[in-house]
Design a binder for these strands. Structure first.
Length: 106
DNA sequence: TATTTGACCAAGA
DNA sequence: ATCTTGGCCAAAT
């Protein structure tokens, strides 16, 4: 019973569309999904049942801060670094350049 | 069904 | 600049 049309599933689907080397925000994801539930997005990603399949490390806070990560912030920084996104002092370097605004999800 | 919680955000002090 | 407060909405209990 694979296909579940829950809010979380939509988050993952949309998140998979974020290109490598870019980051998005919880707010952008939620807004693209047609809701204001930034927090619900965070909750969904924390569960993260599609672990490596979904690039949950590309999601950061709207103010350019690193945000959270289930396996610890170090891991998240390392993954971002591999994709060319640098993190300094818990902040995304050149956040505005790396930011990817999600398009509305059908 | 109701209450609580959370990988958030924005505004105020 | 930091800290507190209120608000948003889905998922878990």
């Amino acid at each position: 019973m694979p296909i579940k049309n829950s809010f979380s599933e939509r988050c993952y689907a949309l998140l998979k569309t974020v290109p490598k080397g870019k980051v998005t925000t919880y707010q952008s994801l939620a807004h693209a999904l047609g809701t204001q539930a930034y927090r619900a997005v965070g909750t969904a990603l924390h569960h993260n049942p599609y672990a490596p399949n979904v690039p949950c490390h590309r999601v950061v806070n709207a103010n350019g801060d690193l945000g959270g990560f289930a396996s610890g912030p170090k891991k998240k920084i390392a993954l971002l670094r591999q994709e060319g996104v640098l993190v300094k002092g818990g902040k995304i370097v050149d956040f505005e350049k790396k930011f990817f605004n999600c398009k509305p999800f059908k």
